[in-house]
Design a protein around this nucleic acid. Sequence first.
DNA 1: GCGTTCAGCGTACGTCATACGCTGTTTCGC
DNA 2: GCGAAACAGCGTATGACGTACGCTGAACGC
Lengths: 258, 258
Amino acid sequence: MDAERPELPPQVALLWGRRGPARRGRTSGLSVEAITQAAIRIADAEGLGAVSMARVAAELHSAPMSLYRHVDSKDELLLLMSDAALEGAPELAGADWRERLTSWAYAVLACFRRHPWYREIPISGPPVGPRNLEWFDRALAALADTGLPEGEKVLVVTGLMPVVHGQARLSIDLAAGYEADPEAFGAGFAHALATVVDPARYPALSRVIASGVFGPGGPGGEDTPPEGYDDFGPEFAFALSCYLDGVAAFIARTTSQR
Amino acid sequence: MDAERPELPPQVALLWGRRGPARRGRTSGLSVEAITQAAIRIADAEGLGAVSMARVAAELHSAPMSLYRHVDSKDELLLLMSDAALEGAPELAGADWRERLTSWAYAVLACFRRHPWYREIPISGPPVGPRNLEWFDRALAALADTGLPEGEKVLVVTGLMPVVHGQARLSIDLAAGYEADPEAFGAGFAHALATVVDPARYPALSRVIASGVFGPGGPGGEDTPPEGYDDFGPEFAFALSCYLDGVAAFIARTTSQR
DNA sequence: GCGTTCAGCGTACGTCATACGCTGTTTCGC
DNA sequence: GCGAAACAGCGTATGACGTACGCTGAACGC
């Protein structure tokens, strides 16, 4: 099987550890995996901004330019990180597809939380690394007993990804913002709104403000960290629940036609 | 009213053009707005990576360091851009809340499309700039005739934001990825999957692949640009529709209890 | 044994954000 | 009206960044 491996694009081959080993030359003291793991350690400890080629090399007691024998560019390193940082996808527990998809979504969020820098890496193509595909597989598996055709399962899962990714990004961004400037949230936010919002220009928002939603006693009014800071709050639960309500209706429509 | 303006946080004041004018010293040839608009022009033409202080200054026939008389840092410039690039929020047409929210979502996506770099700017706090608040106001206004209390309106809108933002980010990322490497999509993707996916490790994904969804003739199988490249495709319509189905159920539950 | 291929890395370059401080202009307070 | 303070513009400089280029020594294939 391995000997008959058809040709893969370079980056796919890289993600799967299938760039052929060197056939001549000195043996290597570095490896793609070691470089990737060092980069992830640095990012986890200090954020993605701290991941420079020089810093990764120092972590490995090498010179920066030696990294380029193993990865073509920093972008390539980021791509490797975007797969390797995803921990193995859990087997999902749950009595039905809805519980399992909910469990999947929260597991994705938790993973993003453990690597908050993950959201800063742009997605450059369809998921193709081993870990990314694992998570994709588990989400599809959650829908196994719905009776949906395979194409529709893909639609449900690819529709869920922006929901989860968007939520992950927003909640982590806001958590970082709160840490940097807590005064911008809660009462400080309410105060700023009250100051700048002109009812003529913002009529609906003015009504919300007048209702006290952003003030003391309102659900967004306390000087608490934003949703996502230390727990998964109601906003994500609401959005996920609404999406899954829609999926449930879609499943009912689709399977009742067969 | 203006004379009695209570104190605002510095960045809020900046976003609202309320840093006090200079009271002494030479008159200024630059302005926050000119700097921001120059930065947006460059980003629109060449992407966010091209926006350096030196480049913005050159666009204005100034020296890079003179920008710092008007903005504290490049981060502050990015914050300004993140509000100024949002065009005025449209008045939403539609017979009911659902049509108006759908219209809102597509208008947000279209705006992101015109400024693809927008997604790369981290969100640092709750929306507080004039344009961001305008869009927030319009989404709230779309729910005016639902009978929902104000707090619940906020929940629906804040639940929708990650859906739209997540979709915008993903679709623009993928469009950029396709432009860089079209072979990674369509048949190339299907081929890579067939090569690397082991049914023992990826059972559900293997079934999807075997069904031909990613192959020729399948909905994802043609060598077409990914969703979002030149039009809004079915994935976003599906996700949005599911979310709104859930919102409809939420509205029915909430308003039937009153 | 020789030529080719390989890993490690020194040197160098252009680019970046921004600290520091000089110069000239404008306003404020006495 | 004058001097001091405040201001804008920007030159100089610094440390940091990613990476091109090429030298050196090690390992392999013929």
